[in-house]
Design a protein around this nucleic acid. Sequence first.
DNA 1: CACTGAAATTCGCATCTCGTGAATGTTTAT
DNA 2: ATAAACATTCACGAGATGCGAATTTCAGTG
Lengths: 267, 267
Amino acid sequence: MFIYLPRERWPVPEHGRELTTTATSLRIVDAIDRLEGARMSEIATELGLANSTVHAHLTTLRNHELVVKEGNEFHLGIKFFHLGEQARHRKPEYEIVRRHAHELSNRLNEEVAFAITEHGRSVIIFDENNDPAKEGFQVGRYFHMHNSASGKAMLAEFSRDRVEGVLDRWGLPRETENTIQSAEELYDELERTRERGYSLNQQEALEGLMAVGMAITTPDGSVLGSLDVSGPPYRLSEEQIVPELREAVTQIEREIASRYGPGDRDQ
Amino acid sequence: MFIYLPRERWPVPEHGRELTTTATSLRIVDAIDRLEGARMSEIATELGLANSTVHAHLTTLRNHELVVKEGNEFHLGIKFFHLGEQARHRKPEYEIVRRHAHELSNRLNEEVAFAITEHGRSVIIFDENNDPAKEGFQVGRYFHMHNSASGKAMLAEFSRDRVEGVLDRWGLPRETENTIQSAEELYDELERTRERGYSLNQQEALEGLMAVGMAITTPDGSVLGSLDVSGPPYRLSEEQIVPELREAVTQIEREIASRYGPGDRDQ
DNA sequence: CACTGAAATTCGCATCTCGTGAATGTTTAT
DNA sequence: ATAAACATTCACGAGATGCGAATTTCAGTG
């Protein structure tokens, strides 16, 4: 059974000493994110804090440019975007993946996304598609790993323990009627994924959207992230997609290995 | 007695009450950004804090997914990317601009960037160019407004007071030998910008890069951001660029006015 | 394999800071 | 013009923070 802490939308594990002041500031940031901009008193009631308290936090956040005030509404500052781009380009491997993802997208004429995982969820950090006028609307969104192709591809590479950790923290929230419901079902699915060499998302996260995914591993054996090709079921055929995707992943892993071979990294 | 070292790379204005705990956490985030990943003790010496202190902050930041630990190195978490994308797509107007910027880029076959300003600096949030394999490497970077076309276009729309505020906070750091050096020079340049209707950056930020910029204003008279076309001087001719850029900006402002007419927004 | 040094992590304490409710200021609506 | 709602400031006591010292972990070496 999964227990979601009362006042917080998602569980925050208490590892070591937690500084309550910083934690409160960050809960305020989360609230602004969730509410897509909010007034001070709105935040105060949302989090059960005194107005004066929220005021102090907001001025601090504002001084450091994380929050901007527009009229009386507070919004996330572009500094988040600045810091986010740092995170997105942190590893040079990501750029290699992006290049290949772009080519693959051209070849297949389908959308190709690159996702990475942190803290048991995954986030698409690059989304390449043939129509440059349209931006992947899922970029930057958090996904649960059990109901996305990318997520399952990565879970399939994790140790049993690590998968259990993810489940303990996030559970198996249901998105569509195809969403996997139980741990056993998930373990079976991951086993099948390992056998066939790719993961499938059959409208488990979004009605009308299916995807094929493969994890990308580095020479040291760790998972860098995962590529997936997604589209409407009538257009996507595994037979067409899988070989091309396999080829792309092979090339990516080869290029990464040749540039940042084993032994160069810690662990 | 606690001694807070005054050493900060950027000036942080002290508006209202500043919560030192949160401020310290954010200084640690900045340090990780600056150092592009760092060990705990590195951060401690950099900021003049005790190891145990930094430890507590890092665990808190980690609990909230803003920081990840890889081996013994700490890095910015993808949560920043998630929050950054929120900030980037905050106003629907941005998407309108992006579409037009994309078309303009196709028409001119040059790089077109859309920048917004916060706290006296500017950041490119969209960078459209005809070569989709290449990503604008300046996206997400902070720019000083006195030495970029976008920046000057926006400054030209600000009140004298506001420009002075920007100068007080950020000064006129020199990037190339063409960078504007004095306030008077800048005010003259802004006057000229207003007269001709567009701003110029003649290798003032980067050797070999020039740009033409125009601010985008909303019906309420405030500055939404700024578009600029940039490239090597030998390729960019004002006569070609300016009319097209002017046309794009006019269309953008018209589209924004028709959708989010005056009176709909606070202030 | 024990040894060493460097770094991370834990702990208890003194001190300063934060969170609060109440008071004051400001804006918006009627 | 008045009221209501909200933002901002203030003073103070509870309790969290930052520190140094102690402990543990880990990598490299003889």
